[in-house]
Simulated assay, not measured.
Amino acid sequence: MGEIRFGVDDLAHLRFAVSPLWESVAALRASADPGGHALHLPWIKTASALGRERTDLLPHLPGLEAHAPPPRCPLAEIEEELTAFTGPPEHAEALLAWWRAGVRPYWPRIRAVLEADLAYRTRQLAEDGIQEVFAHLHPSLRWAEDRLTGPGLPTGGLALDGGGLTLAPSAFTNRCVLLLPRRSEPGPPPCLVYPARAVGTLWERRAEPEDGLARLLGRSRAGLLGRTSVPTTTTDLALQTGLSPGAVSQHLAVLRDAGLVTSHRYRREVYYRASELGRALLGQTS
């Protein structure tokens, strides 16, 4: 049993993030343990047959976890994260190949689950405070006074010293893992990875839009609207639907002009999300 000690500044610097690199490592572990990750069996059946990279990486799983860096920004790219990876270069290259073959084809739906979790946690933080966030991250964690305790945390205790902590949900882990920055240079704060909510929905078959909504908007636009319950990019929507990015952009422009989706830019990408009116049409009350 270990602990993380917080100061006032650390609570003010609490962050949330998604880490494609960690998801690649955690997915690799899940693919090697079907019995412990039964929810992922539909994906594991495909992933287990993928590439020599997976077979070569499996013996090095503990080291891969130890060398995975904390994410530097909320929506990091795996290529950026690999620049801070402290393992052997050949492992970094194999991880990137594994990501491209085993994880990236499914990333839009994986990221949708992760971002839905982040939306839930940030709303919980705003409404109920940090104690409630920590109380519901994982049954093994306990928050008391100024510290978080649980298995897998540093046994000697970790004082954050004002740098804060990043929280990152994971679709492929069923435990909490602490990712630490390299000590030799300044970097991002430590990151606590925890199991995401609603992972059971990850591999469900996606329902087609109801006929009434499809007749109103057209089947393509209704389908796109249904996939914007969480912030989503044009590229992700194109991968999910099989439509060209140009066609997706045109349909999204119509939905945005009608007030059914909103958009915001983060770094180099524009994210689309169903508006309150759009969610009402989809029958989503929250």
Rank of each mutant, 00 (worst) to 15 (best):
E210L: 09
P188L: 03
T173N: 02
P195W: 05
P181Y: 02
A198W: 05
L165D: 10
A171Q: 06
G164P: 00
T201W: 12
L213C: 03
R219L: 10
V177R: 14
G200T: 04
G223P: 08
D211T: 13
D211C: 03
G187F: 01
V193I: 15
E204T: 11
R197A: 09
E210Q: 12
R182A: 15
G163S: 12
L167M: 08
R206H: 08
T173R: 10
L179S: 05
E185T: 12
D161M: 10
G212I: 03
T166Q: 09
A159E: 15
A214F: 10
P209C: 09
G164Q: 07
G218Q: 12
T201D: 15
E210K: 06
G212S: 13
P209L: 04
G152S: 13
R206C: 01
G212L: 12
A214G: 09
P186G: 07
G157A: 11
R182N: 12
T149F: 01
V199I: 13
C191A: 14
R205S: 13
R215C: 11
P195M: 09
N174R: 14
A168E: 01
T228H: 08
R205H: 11
C176R: 03
S220K: 14
A207D: 12
P190R: 03
P151S: 13
L153N: 11
R183D: 13
L225A: 09
R206E: 14
G152P: 00
L165C: 05
E185K: 15
R227E: 14
L192D: 00
T173E: 15
G187N: 04
P195L: 07
P151D: 07
L216Y: 09
L224W: 12
G200F: 07
L224N: 12
P169T: 02
G150V: 05
R175D: 15
P169S: 04
L179F: 04
T149Y: 02
